[in-house]
Computed example of a mutant assay.
Amino acid sequence: MANTKFSCMILCLLLPFFLGSKADVGSLIPSSLFDKLLKYRNDNRCPGHGFYTYDSFIAAARSFDGFGTTGDDTTQKRELAAFFAQTSHETTGGWASAPDGPYAWGYCFINEQGVESTTDNFCTSADWPCVPGKRYYGRGPIQLTHNYNYGQAGKAINEDLINNPDLVATNPTVSFKTAIWFWMTPQSNKPSSHDVIIGRWTPTAADRSAGRVPGYGVITNIINGGLECGHGQDNRVDDRVGFYKRYCQILGVNPGDNLDCNNQRPFA
């Protein structure tokens, strides 16, 4: 008679091999690749040098189920390329003649540039009462802005960002979490960037009539379409596409179609 217990142990050990292990962002983006993608993030010429660490990114990424781990290998890499591209544009320190080109300078800034010269507190929603003396300007990889985004993001990641918005600029794991939260979460009538890049979003008839079709371009529309989309060529859109193409090339994936939002009307 066979040793049933022994056979079960062998089967349990071999099962992950046959079924495949659950994808992990760390296996797709090892620290050496992270350094290659964000080549100058620790350069002394970047005001945010030393802030955006690999360990903080991995810790934040692993706290969102499905981020960078949904679909096949190409889909996973394309999502990570798109995420890094959009956030690199938001934090870029690149310029036309920069070493290794302008798209090697993502993650240079933590705080919104020029905010020191304004007094705007970006308190735009009564649903999340603002704290006197606190300002909800752009911080972190996605440049989280407005009190309602700080409130919702904080609730999702279990941090009080209404009372302490500066946490997004002082705690790199929290900072990455706010960016990934925004990426994974549908906004009002907009799909999530995650659903778009993994092919889960199906545009409505209204979307198609507005030119909003699946592809990287509609993610730009989600993030900043009101300012950048629907009026022909825009340098900001070109910058987002430039980062995306660079990261896709490094990751060895095709960027796909519909990369810009030049002919897409913004989401209402």
Rank of each mutant, 00 (worst) to 15 (best):
M1S: 14
T4K: 14
S7W: 06
M9V: 13
C12P: 00
L19K: 14
G20L: 02
G20A: 04
A23M: 01
D24W: 00
V25I: 15
G26P: 05
P30Y: 09
L33E: 01
D35N: 15
K39I: 10
Y40M: 10
N42A: 11
N42I: 06
D43E: 14
D43N: 15
D43S: 15
N44I: 12
R45F: 01
C46E: 03
P47S: 08
G48K: 02
G48F: 03
H49M: 02
F51H: 10
Y52F: 15
Y52I: 09
Y54S: 06
Y54F: 12
D55E: 15
D55Q: 14
S63I: 09
F64Y: 11
F64V: 10
F64D: 07
G66M: 07
F67G: 03
F67L: 05
T70Q: 11
T70V: 02
D72H: 01
D72G: 14
D73I: 13
D73N: 14
D73Y: 11
T75S: 15
K77A: 11
R78W: 00
L80S: 04
A81S: 13
A81W: 01
A81Q: 06
A81M: 04
F84W: 06
A85P: 03
A85K: 05
S88A: 15
H89Q: 13
E90F: 11
G93S: 07
G94W: 05
A98G: 06
A98M: 05
P99N: 07
G101L: 03
Y103A: 04
C108Y: 03
N121P: 12
F122T: 00
F122M: 14
T124F: 09
T124I: 12
D127M: 07
V131N: 00
P132L: 01
P141N: 12
I142P: 00
L144M: 13
T145N: 10
T145H: 07
N149T: 10
G151Y: 08
A153I: 04
K155V: 01
A156Y: 12
A156D: 10
E159H: 12
D160S: 06
D160I: 08
L161E: 10
I162D: 03
N163V: 04
N164D: 15
V168E: 06
A169R: 05
P172W: 07
V174S: 03
K177D: 04
A179W: 03
W183V: 04
W183I: 05
M184P: 07
M184D: 09
Q187G: 00
N189L: 06
D195E: 13
D195A: 14
R200I: 00
R200M: 05
W201C: 07
D207K: 04
P214R: 12
P214D: 13
P214M: 12
I219T: 14
I219D: 03
N221A: 15
N224L: 09
G226K: 03
L227Q: 14
E228H: 02
H231I: 01
G232M: 04
Q233H: 12
N235W: 05
F243Q: 06
F243M: 08
F243Y: 15
Y244Q: 10
K245W: 02
Q249P: 00
N254F: 13
P255I: 04
D260G: 01
Q264L: 09
A268K: 13
